[in-house]
Structures are given as C-alpha cells and as structure tokens.
Design a protein around this nucleic acid. Structure first.
Length: 487
RNA sequence: GAGCCGUUAGCUCAGUAGGUAGAGCAUCGGCCUUUUAAGCCGAGGGUCGCAGGUUCGACUCCUGCACGGCUCACCA
C-alpha cells in the first residue's frame, strides 16, 4: 500500500516551481534567507488601529507571515498578510519600490514573506503597511484553497490539517481552546499540589480497563507489548509508593470501532488522591470543570448545539438505582440475574452472551444516559460494573463509583479505589482475562495502599463540549483515517 | 460488520429524463497607483473516485471496490 501521494505535476505547481527558479536566479535562494520580524500584527493593530483615514504614522515595522490574498492594480498592489496573531493589509507601489516592484509581482498567494514598511491607513479606513522592503522566505508550490469558502471537504481537512488551520479560522480557535483547557486543568491541579507523572504506554499487561488493546513487539527484548488502554494500575502503584496526589494527562489506545465519539488514540486525565473518597472526588470534578468553564468562557453556561448547558453547581446527583427507575423507567432487581435479563430483553436489548455487568451498562446507556443533558452525576453502581472500585460498607453489592454525564455522553468516571489486595485479586480473577492480571499491581496493593479516590476525565469529549464540536475528529489534530491507497 | 448518503477543474459547487461537461474563486496574458470576495477584456485547466457491465453511445443506468460522512452494531 502506497501511503504517500507524489506531488501532482499540474500546471499550477509547475508555474510556481518556475517562479521559484526565476527568483533564485534573480535574488537568491529564499530558503536561505533570514528575517527576524520585530513586530506582531495584532500588536500593530492595537497600537495604530485608531488612526484616521489617510493618516501616516512615520513608524516603520517589520513583520513576517503568509500572503493570503492579493489585489494587483497595475502599478500598485495590495496583499493580505497573516502571521500567528492576526492579518493586515500590505500596499506596494511602483514609485516607492522601483526595480523591486517587478519582483513583487512574483509573490503568490501562499508565499511566506518578511516585510518592512510604514504603517498608515488608507482612504477607505484599512490599516495597512506600505512595503518599503520585502524578502521571500518560503515559496508555496501549491495554491491555497479558496479564500471565500475555505476548505470544506472534511477528508482533506483531516488529512491535510495544515491547510485546514491555514484557511479555516474556527479550526485554529478549537485547538487554541483545547490548549487552554489542558493548561487550565494543569494549573488547577498544580495549585492543589498534584504532581504530574508519566507512566508506561508500552505495557506487558494491558490493565485498568477491559478494552481490546493494540499489540506490538520489542526486538531487543524479544517479546510482545501492548499499548496501554489506561494508566490506572501504574498510577496506583505510585500511590503505594507515597505519591499522594498525582495525575497524568494520558494518551490511551483502544482497538475498537471508530465513530464520532471514539478515536483509537484519545486523551484522558487520570488523577489519584490519597485519603480521599468518591465524594471528595465528586467535589473535585465539579471544581475542575467549573474552572475550565470560567477560564475559557468566563461563564458556567456553555452553548452546545441548540442546548445551553449550565455547569452551575451543585450538579444533579442520583444513584444508579434511582436513575434506572426515575429516568429510565426501569424496575429491576439486578441481584436476580434472571430478572435482569428479562427486563433488559423487554427493553429491546440483545442480552445473548453478555455478562451481568455488560447488561447493566447497556441498560444505563440505552435508557438513562441519553436523557442526561445537563451535568448529572450517577453514583453507587452495582459492584459488577467496576472491579477496581471499593464496595460500599453499608451495601456491599454496590461500589463507591460515580460517572458524570453531560449532553448525553459520559465525561468522567471515578471511584474510591479498592485497596484490599485480597478482594482485588478475587474481583479481577472473576472479571478479567487471566493473562491480563497485573501481578505487580496486586503485589503493590499487598504492601498497603492508602484509601484513595481516583478520577478519569475524557479530555477529547470535554473539548467537544466546550468548543461546540459535533465530532471527536474536530478536536483531534490528526484523527485516525484509513490510509488512502494510491495505485 | 450492516444500512443510507457522498466523491465532477487546485478550492467551492452547478449539471446532463444516456449524446464524452459549466460557473465563481485561484492560475496565465492584457489594461489599471488607495483596493479589500477590486474591476474590465481574453486564455488555459477535467481519464466526472477506481474497475467492470448494459448500450450504437455512460459523468448519468447496473455491479463490485476504495475513501469519507451519518446511523446502527461492537465497545468500561
């Protein structure tokens, strides 16, 4: 399978290559040029935005960026130049540039140039830099997508994200927001004395969840590895080691279906706090997400699609049992497996070959979760649904677990960690594939892990919510697509 | 994995009840020294996703395939 498409030698590319060759002959190799812009366009706009129409500033600036539009008028030419901060109009005139004006006509849309010149405002009120000198720094050998409609083809947008970012301003906004969300979370946790750690992505035993893993092979060690499906077990080993407040912003890999909520590699925040339980973690989750909303939107109300989501605390909290009954309209005694299966069937679920915990999950997913538009916490799950969670003292058939749902999706999953090593061994044996039991983890627990609260937040979905994105692919820079086969 | 929809110029899109294609932007040439989706005149650019089939003739109809989107299934 050929993954790389050769540059199509179409007319447009040929023309630009010829222009580059001409430029090298006349001026020199642009790729060797150096240019240190002293100014940023946004700053220039802030400083001079208010000057009058036709006013000249006598202030020279030096800026660099990409040409995104051109309007030639014979002996005068306008360009729009975009740097990392903003865009501004350039104006070049023959009687100022003389011989160099001819070179200016060799500049194409897409080229990266450095410019020195005076800031002024045109008669029509457009803040402009009059070109006194300019340098080509990189030639664009391909035409840019159209200025007005941008790049619409989602497939090209994802495969050639550089183009998407260049011409679709909203895309840049999404990823700036993503960066800000992640930064906000880090700052929040740092302030509360959490330590950021990194644990192995290549694991011998893929634990902490039950998704299908990706497999790989290490030559020198001569054995298989799995890409992690969750960092959970490693993080708890660190809690045993005395790191009492830790988090990892972790990429996970799950070998499952791809849809608008699932990418094979995705980002989670996982954190652990010793001497906390799931109620402490509920509070923490609420605090983190409210902080994100404030920092990003300046408000706890967020528009998603045609719904306003209000993160104002306290969030609705309801037990698993009540959620099934009140929201899902399901009356079931799940301690009676017969009854559970019957009820699930009557709700249209195909329960063939499903375990009890899977049926419980499906019941919740089908009948309850879609109704949870405003932030809702469901807590006290049947113990079968979470083999790493601690049982409730008052009702050992339940575990101290909660999940946060917003907009009908799961955003966070958390529990009081099971720290009884003997029970943990039993619970894992019962629920997991023998091969996938991490003995090191169990041994670590045997040394004694303090009572601990743990939390996982799906970062991609959180970013979807806060950027009003319909698909996870919109918030991942390079989402997974099939390689395009070229014959 | 299944169903539905999509794929036409570099980009955004029309189109043919079956007679081998158009526009705008971009590009090239000409005019134009304050335009800004600049304007005016002219030009080039397409194996209509790929491969078969039906037909005198397929971009159009049929089948298969590829890639993408949505829905479902799968999925801690």
């Amino acid at each position: 399978m050929v993954l790389k498409m050769p540059l199509p030698e179409d007319e447009l590319v040929k023309e630009r290559k010829e222009k580059l060759a001409q430029w090298i002959k006349l001026v020199g190799n642009p790729y060797w040029e150096r240019f240190s812009p002293q100014d940023k366009i946004k700053k220039i706009r802030e400083k001079f935005g208010q000057i009058k129409k036709g006013e000249k500033t006598a202030v020279n600036v030096s800026i660099a960026g990409r040409v995104i539009a051109q309007r030639a008028h014979g002996k005068a030419t306008f360009f729009d130049l975009k740097d990392g901060t903003d865009k501004i109009q350039l104006y070049g005139r023959f009687d100022r540039l003389n011989d160099k004006y001819e070179l200016l006509s060799k500049i194409d849309i897409g080229d990266i140039i450095g410019v020195k010149g005076e800031v002024f405002k045109t008669h029509t009120g457009e803040l402009t830099v009059e070109i006194e000198d300019f340098t080509l720094l990189a030639k664009s050998l391909h035409p840019l997508p159209e200025k007005w409609h941008g790049l619409q083809d989602v497939e090209i947008r994802y495969r050639k994200r550089w183009l998407d970012l260049l011409v679709n301003p909203r895309v840049k906004e999404i990823f700036l927001a993503r960066g800000k969300i992640v930064k906000t979370i880090r700052e929040f946790l740092d302030k509360r004395d959490f330590i950021e750690v990194e644990t192995p992505i290549m694991q011998y035993v893929p634990g902490g969840a039950t998704a299908r893993p990706f497999k790989t092979y290490h030559n020198a060690l001569g054995r298989d590895f799995y890409l992690r499906i969750a960092p959970e077990l490693y993080l708890k080993k660190l809690v045993v080691g005395g790191l009492e407040k830790i988090y990892e912003m972790n990429k996970n890999f799950r070998n499952e279906g791809i849809d608008r909520f699932h990418n094979p590699e995705f980002t989670m925040l996982e954190l652990y706090q010793a001497y906390a339980n799931y109620f402490d973690i509920m509070q923490l989750t609420q605090d983190i997400i409210c902080e994100v909303a404030y920092k990003l939107k300046g408000s706890l109300k967020v528009q998603y699609a045609d719904t306003e989501i209000d993160f104002s605390p306290p969030w609705r909290k309801i037990t698993f049992k009540d959620a099934l009954r009140e929201i899902g309209k399901i009356e079931v005694d799940w301690t009676n497996e017969e009854n559970l299966r019957e009820v699930a069937k009557s709700k249209g679920l195909n329960v063939e070959g499903l375990s009890k915990s899977q049926i419980l999950d499906h019941l919740l997913d089908k009948s309850v979760v879609p109704h949870l538009i405003q932030p809702t916490i469901i807590y006290d799950y049947p113990f079968e649904t979470a083999p790493l969670a601690k049982r409730k003292k008052e009702d050992p058939l339940l575990v101290e677990r909660f999940e946060l749902f917003v907009s009908g999706w799961e955003i966070a999953n958390a529990y009081s960690e099971l720290n009884d090593p003997l029970e943990q061994r039993e619970r894992l044996k019962r629920s997991a594939d023998e091969r996938f039991i991490d003995e090191d983890f169990l041994e670590a627990l045997e040394y004694g892990m303090p009572p601990t609260g743990g939390l996982g937040i799906g970062i991609d979905r959180l970013v979807m919510l806060f950027t009003n994105s319909a698909s996870i692919r919109e918030v991942i820079l390079f989402p997974q697509l099939r390689p395009k086969k070229i014959t």
